[in-house]
């Protein structure tokens, strides 16, 4: 049996016999480190560290190559990623979370020093524990970065959705007042939410108001054209309102054909036109909202 295998067995033995002692030493060191997250619940901390130590113990006892114990042994991997997720949510920094895992090294090594009399074996076991827990620390870091990435993407999507509200202005008339720079991704979302709203409301006219949009590039102009075309396919009409002079110039210069698009200079003019358009098709609308329709 090689020195390393003997060291691994020793660690398993010591983790088994002294897990309470290791956990207690570690918790004591942690309470100040994780304090930035508010009151640290010692019971929860204890449960987490117990799960990690149990994962280490079982992973080492299994016949798995040492390098794969942290990432390949599911109970240990999950314990470490759960730990990282929970503290990240509570606002603890990535460094502090990784540091907490690294601190488990000290707790283990101290117990190993008392438990293994043979100095060579003790050195081997110490190195082994360091390698294992360095891997676990890196894993918390990776988990932290991944979950941040996920949060950023989700917020990005939410921001896009918030910034493109589709409102009902009149019976069967919808509008999206766009404010700020339109990029391709946002134009895509505008298109989808507007068309979905047309379907859900059986709207006859959709107004896209770009008064608040400072500039439009070719890709965005293309998206606007596509929105108009898709609206027509669904059986509704689209009005583009609030085109600023600069944008009108640019559209003209880009040679984009807007001949089939109904345009109005302001949202108010567009609404007037839309009400007239809805009024032109009385029929069943008259039944539920006849008073509104009489206005036109």
């Amino acid at each position: 049996m090689s020195g390393r295998e003997r060291a691994r067995e020793e660690i398993v033995r010591i983790l088994g016999e002294h897990r309470d002692q290791i956990a207690a030493a570690w918790i004591e060191a942690q309470e100040s480190r994780l304090a930035s997250a508010g009151a640290v619940n010692a019971d929860e901390l204890r449960e987490e560290v117990d799960t990690i130590i149990a994962g280490l113990y079982e992973g080492l006892a299994a016949t798995m190559p040492l390098d794969r114990v942290v990432t390949g042994f599911a109970p240990l991997r999950n314990a470490v990623t759960d730990f990282s997720h929970r503290w990240a949510r509570l606002g603890v920094s990535a460094t502090a979370i990784a540091g907490a895992i690294f601190a488990l090294k000290d707790a283990c090594v101290r117990v190993l020093a008392d438990g293994i009399p043979d100095p060579e074996l003790r050195l081997e076991a110490t190195e082994l524990v360091h390698r294992l827990l360095d891997g676990a620390g890196l894993l918390t870091f990776q988990t932290y970065v991944d979950s941040r990435e996920e949060i950023i993407q989700r917020q990005n999507r939410q921001l896009l959705e918030i910034s493109t509200p589709v409102v009902r202005l009149w019976h069967r008339v919808l509008a999206v007042p766009l404010i700020g720079t339109l990029d391709s991704a946002r134009a895509q979302i505008v298109m989808e939410s507007l068309l979905q709203a047309i379907q859900d409301n059986e709207a006859a006219v959709a107004i896209i108001d770009i008064t608040g949009v400072p500039t439009v590039d070719t890709a965005v102009a293309q998206h606007l054209m596509q929105t108009v075309a898709a609206t027509r396919l669904m059986g509704a009409d689209c009005i583009l309102s609030g085109i600023r002079p600069q944008i009108a110039q640019m559209i003209a210069r880009l040679g984009i054909d807007l001949s089939e698009i109904i345009t109005r200079s302001s949202l108010a003019d567009a609404l007037t036109a839309a009400i007239r358009m809805v009024g032109d098709t009385p029929a069943q609308d008259a039944r539920d909202e006849s008073t509104l329709l009489n206005v036109s």
Partner: peptide
Amino acid sequence: AGMRYPVAITLVELGLD
């Protein structure tokens, strides 16, 4: 009558209006 909105978006992207 009644084209669903995802179908309309897809057709336009295909260049089939």
